[in-house]
Design a binder for these strands. Sequence first.
DNA 1: CTGAAAGCGCTTACAG
DNA 2: CTGAAAGCGCTTACAG
Lengths: 341, 341
Amino acid sequence: MSSLAKIARICGVSVGATSKALTGKPGVSEVTRQRILNVAAQQNYRPNRLVHAIQSGRSMTVGLTCNDFQDDFVGSILKGMLEVLYEASYDPIVISWDLCVHEGETVLRTFAERRVDGLLMFPPADQPTHAYLQELKSFQRPIVVVDQVFAGVEDYDFTGSQDYEGGQIATEHLIKLGHKNIANLYHLETSTGRARLDGFRSTMQKHGLIVHEQWMYNIEHYGTKEAYNHAKRLLSEKNGPTAIVAFNDWVALDVLAAARDLNLSVPNDVSVVGFANLRVASSVRPRLTTIAQNPLLIGRRAAKRLLELLDGEKADSPPHHPVTDRIPVKLIIGESTRPIA
Amino acid sequence: MSSLAKIARICGVSVGATSKALTGKPGVSEVTRQRILNVAAQQNYRPNRLVHAIQSGRSMTVGLTCNDFQDDFVGSILKGMLEVLYEASYDPIVISWDLCVHEGETVLRTFAERRVDGLLMFPPADQPTHAYLQELKSFQRPIVVVDQVFAGVEDYDFTGSQDYEGGQIATEHLIKLGHKNIANLYHLETSTGRARLDGFRSTMQKHGLIVHEQWMYNIEHYGTKEAYNHAKRLLSEKNGPTAIVAFNDWVALDVLAAARDLNLSVPNDVSVVGFANLRVASSVRPRLTTIAQNPLLIGRRAAKRLLELLDGEKADSPPHHPVTDRIPVKLIIGESTRPIA
DNA sequence: CTGAAAGCGCTTACAG
DNA sequence: CTGAAAGCGCTTACAG
């Protein structure tokens, strides 16, 4: 890789002059500038941005932590982030939490050493360790937490969805259709899951409906058979629920599968509501009734917020108050719910 | 962010001594080393890796270009890559092709300026421009192409799937079940799509079966209604095909949906084979018969190959011959295919 | 217009 | 053991 010095040597001018010529700064004659430009092009010169990062104290990179990229929800969030970052000439360095279970502090340390300007953080899957929270505290750069919250990150900006309201909307929808006996396959392991469940319970209560605790199942890992098995159990009961609220579309798919395997019909025998409006929600039959999130917007807003914080630093503005930004969700009526017979 | 100089000043020693102490090099007394270590910890010192990158000529970063992260196929490839990179202390800088349509050279230029040590490249969605290929040629670092090939990248290492064989296996499976009238919803826009189609045609020919060209549809964009509409057309024909080979699982899902909407049964009225074995393939009913790829392994192997190339550079080994690495695929028999009546 | 020099944050021979 | 100095690749005041 050819350096400034090399270009300078070839052109027979000083390094300083070469720098000015290539960065378009005044202080070089047009003739020498052209000569330098030509040689640089011919030598395939690429300025070393690492140097610029050191000099300016800005690496123009952002740390990005992710749990997995297993569906279009996280995929779209990423897309939204990349879009905004690209526009602002920032590039993300991506590290997966999965890789460093119980040593999340390593991730933060790496980001610190690489001098990222800020952090876009999908919280780690597991409960954060003390060491991690410690490292987080001493992490000197702006942080925006995405999608999930957890104990210890209340002091940071947050961008996610109106999960609580989503839980309410899903439940309201079923109640409006006449359902009273509603089960819930929820997910206590994440803040989104807990919020959606809270929304469910508050809505049931608001309408004076009983929550049948024997129909309430926590799905610890929704990639496995767990949801499917619970769904089968629910659907096999006589006088079982007439509707099921699922933590997300994957769980809802498991309910569809369980119903199918029991020769039951969704929505004729049971109604199902999902959450997320994943790509698959409208691909399957029956199409899922689901609560649409707006992952693209979540990604964009999270990144924009981070850029604001970074600009604020430059402007040396007063310490900010962390902002919680929850993007509205929307009921998508598919074919997996119907009025009770 | 505290610097070496700051630590040195506080400790009242030279920068050199501080450096030695913190990097564990000999040449400092144990007493001062401890003093320095303590101050560094207390000052929350983090060495600036950008400096190290400049000095060593190794940034320990890898450029990663992606089209989208819309399903678990790409997601798992990424996971595999991140795993291997993390193990070797490399971190990826991720840029999405989507963002810079028709100016892919910008991406490469950014990577060059950021001095990534190598490149893991999902080829751009659109036909590469001349400027792009130009920039690629002058990109001085090792490159591994992933999943898709395109004209102009024949000279690079490649890691992907046995798509051609996959096309054969899918077709063989249907033929073994007695199907003769087989349609194909293919995807000419990508090399994988073309290879799978070739595998289909060669297998049909091998068995002396006629390819009915009026049942052959190119799916330009498989996120849209396109596949669904073509599938409906195919399924509405009297004496239509008894089986359909789909470019991938998403297209296969569209066939399932079309069948459902026409009150037809898969597999009783028509058999369908997908490709990829996405997470959704076993979530839907009927479960998809599909050709499983091994995205995790693709990701790992691609990253490993890149690391080998990087090691080779250090060792100053002779110019290598580009290696093409196609991971075997595997037939997964679901419920979407059955012997012909 | 042009060049020599300082400095960004570090490491590494080289003197003392 | 310890410090001063050169150097990585650049930019930016500062002299000429």
